[in-house]
Protein backbone atom coordinates (compact mmCIF):
# COMPACT_ATOMS: atom_id res chain seq x y z
CA UNK A 1 0.00 0.00 0.00
CA UNK A 2 1.23 3.41 -0.85
CA UNK A 3 0.15 5.68 1.94
CA UNK A 4 1.60 8.88 0.49
CA UNK A 5 -1.12 11.55 0.15
CA UNK A 6 -0.01 12.19 -3.42
CA UNK A 7 -1.07 8.67 -4.32
CA UNK A 8 -4.60 9.01 -2.98
CA UNK A 9 -7.25 8.39 -5.58
CA UNK A 10 -4.66 7.28 -8.15
CA UNK A 11 -5.16 4.02 -9.99
CA UNK A 12 -2.60 1.51 -8.89
CA UNK A 13 -0.50 -0.69 -11.09
CA UNK A 14 -0.89 -4.43 -10.45
CA UNK A 15 2.51 -4.36 -8.82
CA UNK A 16 1.44 -1.63 -6.41
CA UNK A 17 -1.81 -3.40 -5.71
CA UNK A 18 -0.08 -6.58 -4.60
CA UNK A 19 -0.06 -6.72 -0.84
CA UNK A 20 1.02 -10.10 0.55
CA UNK A 21 0.24 -9.06 4.11
CA UNK A 22 -3.22 -7.72 3.48
CA UNK A 23 -5.67 -9.15 5.97
CA UNK A 24 -8.69 -8.28 3.89
CA UNK A 25 -10.03 -9.81 0.75
CA UNK A 26 -9.79 -7.22 -2.03
CA UNK A 27 -13.13 -6.08 -3.33
CA UNK A 28 -14.53 -8.26 -6.08
CA UNK A 29 -16.11 -5.21 -7.70
CA UNK A 30 -12.87 -3.53 -8.68
CA UNK A 31 -12.05 -3.89 -12.39
CA UNK A 32 -9.87 -6.86 -13.14
CA UNK A 33 -6.29 -6.24 -14.16
CA UNK A 34 -5.91 -9.57 -15.88
CA UNK A 35 -7.52 -8.45 -19.13
CA UNK A 36 -10.10 -11.06 -20.04
CA UNK A 37 -11.43 -11.31 -16.49
CA UNK A 38 -11.63 -15.09 -16.57
CA UNK A 39 -10.41 -16.74 -13.43
CA UNK A 40 -7.29 -18.77 -13.85
CA UNK A 41 -6.33 -17.48 -17.28
CA UNK A 42 -3.74 -15.05 -16.05
CA UNK A 43 -0.46 -15.63 -14.36
CA UNK A 44 -1.45 -13.63 -11.29
CA UNK A 45 -2.30 -16.73 -9.15
CA UNK A 46 -5.36 -14.93 -7.85
CA UNK A 47 -3.34 -12.40 -5.86
CA UNK A 48 -5.07 -9.58 -7.68
CA UNK A 49 -8.74 -8.87 -8.01
CA UNK A 50 -9.88 -11.80 -10.05
CA UNK A 51 -13.67 -11.56 -10.34
CA UNK A 52 -15.45 -14.37 -8.52
CA UNK A 53 -13.66 -17.38 -7.13
CA UNK A 54 -12.54 -18.43 -3.71
CA UNK A 55 -12.34 -15.66 -1.10
CA UNK A 56 -9.21 -17.02 0.57
CA UNK A 57 -7.43 -17.33 -2.78
CA UNK A 58 -8.42 -13.76 -3.58
CA UNK A 59 -6.92 -12.62 -0.30
CA UNK A 60 -3.71 -14.31 -1.28
CA UNK A 61 -4.23 -17.21 1.09
CA UNK A 62 -4.47 -14.84 4.03
CA UNK A 63 -7.35 -15.48 6.40
CA UNK A 64 -9.83 -12.61 6.40
CA UNK A 65 -11.27 -11.22 9.61
CA UNK A 66 -14.56 -9.49 10.23
CA UNK A 67 -13.94 -5.82 9.58
CA UNK A 68 -17.49 -4.63 9.42
CA UNK A 69 -20.87 -6.03 10.31
CA UNK A 70 -23.17 -6.98 7.46
CA UNK A 71 -26.62 -7.95 8.64
CA UNK A 72 -27.20 -6.02 11.81
CA UNK A 73 -29.61 -5.61 14.69
CA UNK A 74 -29.92 -2.24 16.39
CA UNK A 75 -29.97 -1.24 20.07
CA UNK A 76 -31.15 -3.41 22.96
CA UNK A 77 -32.43 -2.21 26.32
CA UNK A 78 -32.29 -3.59 29.85
CA UNK A 79 -33.91 -2.62 33.13
CA UNK A 80 -33.86 -4.04 36.65
CA UNK A 81 -37.31 -4.15 38.27
CA UNK A 82 -38.77 -5.50 41.49
CA UNK A 83 -38.93 -9.21 40.55
CA UNK A 84 -35.87 -9.37 38.29
CA UNK A 85 -34.70 -7.96 34.98
CA UNK A 86 -36.36 -6.98 31.69
CA UNK A 87 -34.70 -6.86 28.28
CA UNK A 88 -36.11 -5.41 25.07
CA UNK A 89 -35.07 -5.73 21.42
CA UNK A 90 -36.89 -5.25 18.15
CA UNK A 91 -37.35 -7.95 15.50
CA UNK A 92 -35.36 -6.35 12.71
CA UNK A 93 -32.13 -7.51 11.12
CA UNK A 94 -31.04 -4.83 8.62
CA UNK A 95 -28.86 -5.31 5.56
CA UNK A 96 -27.18 -1.94 5.55
CA UNK A 97 -30.08 0.50 5.61
CA UNK A 98 -32.45 -2.03 4.07
CA UNK A 99 -34.95 -3.53 6.53
CA UNK A 100 -34.10 -7.00 5.25
CA UNK A 101 -35.28 -9.55 7.89
CA UNK A 102 -38.31 -8.46 9.85
CA UNK A 103 -38.97 -11.45 12.06
CA UNK A 104 -35.73 -12.08 13.94
CA UNK A 105 -35.76 -12.78 17.64
CA UNK A 106 -32.79 -11.08 19.26
CA UNK A 107 -33.55 -12.22 22.80
CA UNK A 108 -32.28 -15.65 23.79
CA UNK A 109 -33.15 -17.41 27.02
CA UNK A 110 -29.95 -19.08 28.26
CA UNK A 111 -30.50 -21.04 31.42
CA UNK A 112 -33.38 -21.37 33.76
CA UNK A 113 -33.26 -23.75 36.68
CA UNK A 114 -34.48 -23.66 40.26
CA UNK A 115 -31.31 -21.74 41.15
CA UNK A 116 -31.05 -19.11 38.43
CA UNK A 117 -32.31 -17.80 35.11
CA UNK A 118 -30.47 -15.77 32.47
CA UNK A 119 -31.28 -14.17 29.13
CA UNK A 120 -29.24 -12.41 26.47
CA UNK A 121 -30.24 -9.50 24.19
CA UNK A 122 -27.95 -8.97 21.21
CA UNK A 123 -27.36 -6.16 18.74
CA UNK A 124 -24.76 -5.93 15.97
CA UNK A 125 -23.80 -8.56 13.41
CA UNK A 126 -26.40 -11.28 13.19
CA UNK A 127 -24.07 -14.05 11.98
CA UNK A 128 -21.75 -13.37 14.90
CA UNK A 129 -24.83 -13.45 17.11
CA UNK A 130 -25.70 -16.90 15.81
CA UNK A 131 -22.14 -18.06 16.43
CA UNK A 132 -22.31 -16.69 19.98
CA UNK A 133 -25.61 -18.39 20.58
CA UNK A 134 -24.09 -21.70 19.49
CA UNK A 135 -21.09 -21.22 21.77
CA UNK A 136 -23.23 -20.40 24.78
CA UNK A 137 -25.62 -23.27 24.17
CA UNK A 138 -22.69 -25.69 23.87
CA UNK A 139 -21.26 -24.42 27.13
CA UNK A 140 -24.60 -24.66 28.93
CA UNK A 141 -25.32 -28.18 27.66
CA UNK A 142 -21.87 -29.25 28.76
CA UNK A 143 -22.48 -27.69 32.16
CA UNK A 144 -25.83 -29.41 32.49
CA UNK A 145 -24.26 -32.74 31.62
CA UNK A 146 -21.78 -32.31 34.44
CA UNK A 147 -24.54 -31.24 36.82
CA UNK A 148 -26.21 -34.60 36.20
CA UNK A 149 -23.30 -36.14 38.08
CA UNK A 150 -23.05 -33.84 41.09
CA UNK A 151 -26.29 -31.82 41.16
CA UNK A 152 -24.25 -28.62 41.52
CA UNK A 153 -26.21 -25.43 40.75
CA UNK A 154 -25.84 -24.32 37.15
CA UNK A 155 -23.92 -21.24 36.00
CA UNK A 156 -25.66 -18.08 37.17
CA UNK A 157 -25.90 -14.81 35.21
CA UNK A 158 -22.65 -13.51 36.74
CA UNK A 159 -20.77 -16.62 35.59
CA UNK A 160 -22.26 -16.58 32.09
CA UNK A 161 -21.44 -12.86 31.86
CA UNK A 162 -17.83 -13.56 32.83
CA UNK A 163 -17.59 -16.26 30.16
CA UNK A 164 -19.17 -13.99 27.58
CA UNK A 165 -16.87 -11.05 28.30
CA UNK A 166 -13.83 -13.36 28.22
CA UNK A 167 -14.98 -14.69 24.84
CA UNK A 168 -15.53 -11.18 23.45
CA UNK A 169 -12.19 -9.91 24.74
CA UNK A 170 -10.32 -12.96 23.43
CA UNK A 171 -11.76 -12.38 19.96
CA UNK A 172 -10.92 -8.69 19.92
CA UNK A 173 -7.39 -9.62 21.01
CA UNK A 174 -7.13 -11.85 17.93
CA UNK A 175 -8.07 -8.75 15.89
CA UNK A 176 -11.16 -10.72 14.88
CA UNK A 177 -13.95 -9.38 17.06
CA UNK A 178 -17.48 -10.68 17.26
CA UNK A 179 -19.24 -7.54 16.06
CA UNK A 180 -21.87 -7.31 18.74
CA UNK A 181 -23.01 -5.27 21.69
CA UNK A 182 -25.21 -7.13 24.12
CA UNK A 183 -26.90 -7.14 27.46
CA UNK A 184 -27.11 -10.08 29.79
CA UNK A 185 -29.84 -10.10 32.39
CA UNK A 186 -30.50 -12.69 35.05
CA UNK A 187 -31.54 -13.62 38.54
CA UNK A 188 -29.78 -15.90 40.98
CA UNK A 189 -30.84 -16.54 44.58
CA UNK A 190 -33.11 -13.46 44.49
CA UNK A 191 -30.25 -11.29 43.25
CA UNK A 192 -30.76 -9.43 39.93
CA UNK A 193 -27.93 -8.93 37.47
CA UNK A 194 -27.70 -6.76 34.37
CA UNK A 195 -24.47 -6.30 32.42
CA UNK A 196 -23.18 -4.99 29.09
CA UNK A 197 -20.48 -6.49 26.84
CA UNK A 198 -19.38 -5.36 23.40
CA UNK A 199 -17.01 -6.21 20.57
CA UNK A 200 -14.05 -4.65 22.40
CA UNK A 201 -14.70 -6.76 25.48
CA UNK A 202 -15.77 -3.63 27.35
CA UNK A 203 -17.92 -4.50 30.34
CA UNK A 204 -20.08 -2.57 32.75
CA UNK A 205 -23.10 -3.22 34.91
CA UNK A 206 -25.93 -0.95 35.93
CA UNK A 207 -29.61 -1.27 36.87
CA UNK A 208 -30.51 0.37 33.55
CA UNK A 209 -28.59 -0.27 30.35
CA UNK A 210 -28.89 0.30 26.62
CA UNK A 211 -26.57 -0.45 23.70
CA UNK A 212 -25.83 1.50 20.53
CA UNK A 213 -28.22 4.30 19.61
CA UNK A 214 -30.23 3.39 22.69
CA UNK A 215 -27.36 4.39 24.95
CA UNK A 216 -27.94 7.96 23.73
CA UNK A 217 -31.71 8.00 23.34
CA UNK A 218 -33.11 5.48 25.82
CA UNK A 219 -30.61 5.26 28.66
CA UNK A 220 -31.47 8.79 29.97
CA UNK A 221 -35.17 7.91 29.92
CA UNK A 222 -34.59 4.60 31.68
CA UNK A 223 -32.41 6.24 34.31
CA UNK A 224 -34.91 9.02 34.88
CA UNK A 225 -37.70 6.52 35.47
CA UNK A 226 -35.49 4.29 37.62
CA UNK A 227 -34.26 7.14 39.81
CA UNK A 228 -37.71 8.64 40.15
CA UNK A 229 -39.04 5.35 41.46
CA UNK A 230 -36.02 5.01 43.72
CA UNK A 231 -36.63 8.47 45.20
CA UNK A 232 -40.27 7.57 45.85
CA UNK A 233 -39.12 4.53 47.75
CA UNK A 234 -36.54 6.44 49.75
CA UNK A 235 -38.94 9.21 50.77
CA UNK A 236 -41.37 6.57 52.00
CA UNK A 237 -43.97 7.67 49.48
CA UNK A 238 -44.10 4.13 48.12
CA UNK A 239 -42.86 0.79 49.29
CA UNK A 240 -39.66 -0.57 47.78
CA UNK A 241 -37.28 1.21 45.46
CA UNK A 242 -37.84 -0.75 42.26
CA UNK A 243 -40.47 -0.57 39.58
CA UNK A 244 -43.31 -3.05 39.38
CA UNK A 245 -43.64 -5.32 36.36
CA UNK A 246 -46.25 -3.09 34.69
CA UNK A 247 -44.26 0.07 35.30
CA UNK A 248 -41.13 -1.49 33.85
CA UNK A 249 -42.98 -2.64 30.74
CA UNK A 250 -44.45 0.86 30.30
CA UNK A 251 -40.99 2.49 30.52
CA UNK A 252 -39.50 0.03 28.04
CA UNK A 253 -42.40 0.51 25.63
CA UNK A 254 -41.90 4.26 25.79
CA UNK A 255 -38.17 3.86 25.07
CA UNK A 256 -38.81 1.53 22.15
CA UNK A 257 -41.22 4.12 20.73
CA UNK A 258 -38.70 6.94 21.04
CA UNK A 259 -36.09 4.74 19.38
CA UNK A 260 -38.48 3.86 16.58
CA UNK A 261 -39.05 7.56 15.89
CA UNK A 262 -35.37 8.48 15.94
CA UNK A 263 -33.35 5.40 14.99
CA UNK A 264 -33.53 4.70 11.27
CA UNK A 265 -32.40 1.06 11.79
CA UNK A 266 -35.24 0.23 14.17
CA UNK A 267 -38.67 -1.24 13.60
CA UNK A 268 -42.02 -0.93 15.33
CA UNK A 269 -42.12 -4.60 16.24
CA UNK A 270 -40.29 -5.76 19.32
CA UNK A 271 -40.25 -8.22 22.18
CA UNK A 272 -39.68 -7.93 25.91
CA UNK A 273 -38.01 -10.65 27.97
CA UNK A 274 -38.92 -10.85 31.64
CA UNK A 275 -36.35 -12.71 33.73
CA UNK A 276 -37.45 -13.65 37.24
CA UNK A 277 -36.71 -16.44 39.71
CA UNK A 278 -39.55 -18.34 37.98
CA UNK A 279 -37.70 -18.34 34.66
CA UNK A 280 -37.46 -16.41 31.40
CA UNK A 281 -40.62 -15.23 29.68
CA UNK A 282 -40.28 -13.74 26.21
CA UNK A 283 -43.34 -11.84 25.08
CA UNK A 284 -44.95 -12.09 21.68
CA UNK A 285 -43.97 -9.35 19.25
CA UNK A 286 -45.75 -6.07 19.85
CA UNK A 287 -45.90 -2.55 18.40
CA UNK A 288 -46.58 0.96 19.66
CA UNK A 289 -49.17 3.46 18.41
CA UNK A 290 -47.30 6.11 16.45
CA UNK A 291 -48.19 9.51 15.10
CA UNK A 292 -46.65 10.77 11.84
CA UNK A 293 -48.92 13.79 11.07
CA UNK A 294 -46.20 16.20 12.14
CA UNK A 295 -43.92 14.81 9.45
CA UNK A 296 -46.01 16.41 6.70
CA UNK A 297 -44.55 19.79 7.59
CA UNK A 298 -40.96 18.61 7.57
CA UNK A 299 -38.67 19.51 4.72
CA UNK A 300 -37.13 16.43 3.13
CA UNK A 301 -40.01 14.16 4.14
CA UNK A 302 -42.73 13.33 1.59
CA UNK A 303 -43.52 15.43 -1.49
CA UNK A 304 -42.07 18.92 -1.36
CA UNK A 305 -44.51 21.84 -1.72
CA UNK A 306 -42.05 24.49 -2.83
Amino acid sequence: MNHHPGAWGQTLTPHQRFDAYSSSAPSRYQPSTSGSGIVGNGNDHGFYDAPGGNEAVMAGGVVGHTQQPLVTGTSVLGLVFADGVMLAADNLASYGSLARFRDIQRLIPLESSKHSSSCLAVGGDMSDFQYLQKQLETMIINERTQALGDDHPSLGPVQIYEYLSNLMYARRSKMDPLWNAMLLGGVKDGESFLGYVDLLGTTYTSPTLASGFGSHMAQPLLREAYEKRQAQGKSGEREGELMSRDEAVAVLEDCMKVLYYRDARSMNKYQIATITAQGVDISASKSNETEWKFAEGLRGYGPQKQ
Binding site: Q146, G149, H152, Q159
Partner: peptide, 15 residues
Protein backbone atom coordinates in the same frame (compact mmCIF):
# COMPACT_ATOMS: atom_id res chain seq x y z
CA UNK B 1 -12.11 -18.80 38.42
CA UNK B 2 -10.85 -16.93 35.35
CA UNK B 3 -13.30 -18.18 32.76
CA UNK B 4 -16.49 -18.39 34.82
CA UNK B 5 -15.67 -16.35 37.96
CA UNK B 6 -16.67 -19.44 39.89
CA UNK B 7 -14.74 -21.57 42.38
CA UNK B 8 -14.66 -25.01 40.75
CA UNK B 9 -17.22 -27.49 42.17
CA UNK B 10 -15.26 -29.99 44.30
CA UNK B 11 -16.75 -33.11 42.73
CA UNK B 12 -15.72 -31.94 39.26
CA UNK B 13 -12.10 -31.23 40.06
CA UNK B 14 -11.80 -34.69 41.64
CA UNK B 15 -13.48 -36.28 38.64
Amino acid sequence: RMLYARPIPVGRIVQ
